[in-house]
Design a binder for these strands. Structure first.
Lengths: 201, 201
DNA sequence: GTCTATATGCAGATAGAC
DNA sequence: GTCTATCTGCATATAGAC
C-alpha cells in the first residue's frame, strides 16, 4: 500500500537525520527532504516532531533489548554472558552510533516513560540483580552489586561513542579510521578488563 | 563595583539554571528572573545565550582541570593516582552534577574549541599516554593503552550522573537518598575495580 | 494522501528612553 | 547600567485546495 510505504519512508529518513543531527538539531524540513516528500506529510502521519522522534527512538531501542534479555536468560557461565553483552551492545551501537545520545536525551526528557518501556519489553533488573548476587554468593566473582556492575559496563561501552568528536581529536589526531579500529578493539579490551576485575582465580 | 556584581549575579544564576535544565532547556527569561534582573541585561553583558553558556561552562571546567593535572604530575605510584583522579573528579561532579551533560553537549557542538581549551589549560594527553606506556613497560600494570584506560575510567565515573533519572527509578525505587549513597560508594568501587583489573600481583 | 500556503508561538535579540 | 517595549526569525504546526 502506498500509504504504508510513505510512512515507512518517513521513518527511514527520520532515522538517518536524527542519527546524524540528534533530536534538537534535526529539522522537520530536512526529514521531509530526505524522505522526498512534503513537510506537511510528516504531521499527517505523526502529529508532532516529538512523536516522530519517539517512534524512531523506541523502534531502535526495541530491536536491541530482546537480544540482551536472551543473553541474560541463557545458561552460559557468567563470564561468557559478560562477553556476549559487550559484543551485542557494542555491535548494535556501531550500527546506531547516536543511540547513546538518544537514550541520554530520553532519560532526561521522560525517564518515566523510558522506564516503563523497558519493563514492557521484559527487561527486569531485579531478576538480573539476583543473578549477580548469586554469582557473588557462590564465589564465582568478587563482591559487587548489580547497580555498580551495570554502571561500569555501560559506562565503558558507551563512552567512546558519546565522546567521539573530542576523543578522536585529542587521542587519535582526528584520524577516523584509527578511531573505528579503536572502537573495535574495545570489545575485547572491556571484556578482558571486567574479567580481570571480577573473576576469582 | 555594581557592574561587576551584576555580571557576577548573572553568572551565578545562569549556573544554577543551566545546571538544572541544561543548555537547551534553560530560558533566558528564567535566568534573568533567577538573577533578579531584566532579560535585556543578559544581552548587555553577554551578547548571546551561547556566549553566556560557554562562559559558565568553561568556568566550571577550568576549576576542575588544574586539580587533575596536578595529580598526573605528582610522583605517587600509579595506583594512588588512579584513586586520586576518581576521588577528585567524582567529588567535583557531586557538586556540579550536570557537568557531564555540559561536556557532552559541547563535545558535539564545538569539539574543536573544547579540545583547544583543554590544551590551553595544559592538559596534555600525549604526556599521560607515555606515562601509562611506561607503567606497562615496567610491568607495574597489565597491558592497556591510555585511550582505553581513559574511556574506561571516565565512563565508569560519569555514567551514574548521566543516567541518574533512569537508574534511580529502575535500580533504587526512585529513592533519592539511596542513590546519593550509591554515588558515594562508587568512588571506592571504581578504584577497586580498576586496581583489580590492572595491577599485577 | 498529497500538496501549497499560512498561521502560531516562542525565545533570542535589539531599540531606545531614562 | 538598567529598564520597557518591540522586533525578528525560525521551526513547528495547521488550513484548505486538489
Amino acid at each position: 500500500m502506498s500509504s504504508d510505504s510513505t510512512k515507512e519512508k518517513i521513518v527511514q529518513a527520520a532515522q538517518r537525520i536524527f542519527v546524524r543531527k540528534g533530536m534538537d538539531g534535526a529539522r522537520m524540513q530536512e526529514i521531509a527532504d530526505e524522505a522526498g516528500i512534503n513537510k506537511a506529510m510528516l504531521h499527517y502521519y505523526f502529529h508532532s516532531k516529538d512523536q516522530l522522534f519517539r517512534e524512531v527512538f523506541y523502534g531502535i531501542l526495541s530491536r536491541l533489548i530482546p537480544g540482551l534479555i536472551n543473553i541474560f536468560k541463557g545458561n552460559e557461565p557468567f563470564e561468557d554472558k559478560i562477553e556476549a553483552i559487550v559484543y551485542e551492545y557494542d555491535a548494535y551501537m556501531s550500527k546506531n552510533p547516536i543511540l547513546p545520545q538518544f537514550v541520554i536525551r530520553e532519560i532526561n526528557r521522560d525517564p518515566e516513560q523510558l522506564a516503563g518501556f523497558m519493563t514492557d519489553q521484559g527487561l527486569d533488573f531485579l531478576q538480573i540483580e539476583e543473578m549477580v548476587d548469586q554469582e557473588v554468593k557462590n564465589g564465582k566473582i568478587r563482591p559487587i552489586t548489580f547497580p555498580h556492575l551495570f554502571a561500569n559496563l555501560i559506562g565503558m561501552i558507551v563512552m567512546p561513542y558519546i565522546g567521539r568528536p573530542l576523543f578522536q581529536r585529542k587521542l587519535f589526531n582526528n584520524d577516523s579510521e584509527k578511531y573505528d579500529q579503536y572502537l573495535l578493539e574495545r570489545r575485547t579490551v572491556i571484556t578482558q578488563f571486567v574479567k580481570q576485575a571480577l573473576l576469582v582465580k
